[in-house]
Amino acid sequence: MSIPANALSDEECLHYAALDPAATAELTRRLTSQSIDPSAEREELREDIRRLESQASDDEDELENLRDDATEACEWIKRAMDPEDRELSLNALLQKALDRLE
């Protein structure tokens, strides 16, 4: 059963062209009739790449902050477990650890 290629959006047509001969023919027809602008598609892809790179950078920063907070929480917990380190009360040390994890 073939895909109804003429009903595909331009994006779907680009995707299915490698999978279905009817979609390939439809893509060829659209390109030759200039109903698909390859440079516009390319620019959209570039925008998607920029957006994804920005999101990846933001996610990396957030992950680094979470690692830092977890490391600091571990230090507070270690201090709470050390009977010789009673600069702060046990509850105060554990509260500091909890604050870093929240």
Score class of each variant (00 low, 15 high):
7 A>T: 07
7 A>C: 12
8 L>D: 01
8 L>S: 00
8 L>M: 07
9 S>Y: 06
9 S>T: 15
9 S>I: 02
9 S>V: 02
12 E>R: 04
12 E>Y: 03
12 E>C: 01
13 C>S: 05
14 L>E: 07
14 L>K: 01
15 H>C: 03
16 Y>G: 04
16 Y>S: 01
16 Y>F: 15
17 A>M: 01
17 A>P: 03
18 A>R: 13
19 L>S: 12
20 D>E: 15
21 P>Y: 03
21 P>T: 03
21 P>D: 08
22 A>R: 06
23 A>R: 03
23 A>W: 01
23 A>I: 04
23 A>D: 01
25 A>Q: 14
25 A>L: 14
26 E>H: 04
26 E>I: 04
26 E>D: 05
26 E>K: 00
28 T>P: 00
28 T>D: 11
29 R>S: 13
29 R>M: 09
29 R>C: 04
30 R>L: 05
31 L>Y: 02
31 L>R: 01
32 T>D: 12
32 T>A: 06
33 S>W: 01
34 Q>G: 05
34 Q>I: 07
34 Q>K: 14
35 S>H: 11
35 S>L: 09
35 S>D: 09
36 I>H: 04
38 P>C: 04
38 P>R: 02
38 P>T: 02
38 P>W: 00
39 S>L: 15
39 S>I: 13
39 S>A: 13
40 A>Y: 06
41 E>K: 12
41 E>S: 08
41 E>W: 11
41 E>R: 11
43 E>K: 09
43 E>H: 10
44 E>Q: 14
44 E>V: 10
45 L>M: 14
46 R>F: 13
46 R>M: 10
46 R>V: 08
47 E>Q: 15
48 D>C: 09
48 D>E: 15
50 R>D: 10
50 R>M: 05
50 R>H: 07
50 R>A: 10
51 R>I: 04
51 R>P: 01
52 L>H: 11
52 L>T: 10
53 E>L: 13
53 E>F: 06
54 S>I: 03
55 Q>T: 07
55 Q>E: 14
56 A>Y: 11
57 S>I: 04
57 S>M: 03
58 D>I: 00
58 D>E: 14
58 D>F: 09
58 D>T: 08
59 D>W: 09
60 E>W: 06
60 E>F: 08
61 D>E: 14
61 D>Q: 14
61 D>A: 13
62 E>Y: 10
64 E>D: 12
65 N>V: 03
65 N>P: 00
67 R>G: 00
68 D>C: 10
69 D>V: 00
70 A>F: 08
71 T>K: 09
71 T>P: 00
72 E>T: 08
72 E>Q: 13
72 E>I: 04
73 A>W: 03
73 A>I: 01
73 A>L: 02
73 A>K: 01
73 A>M: 04
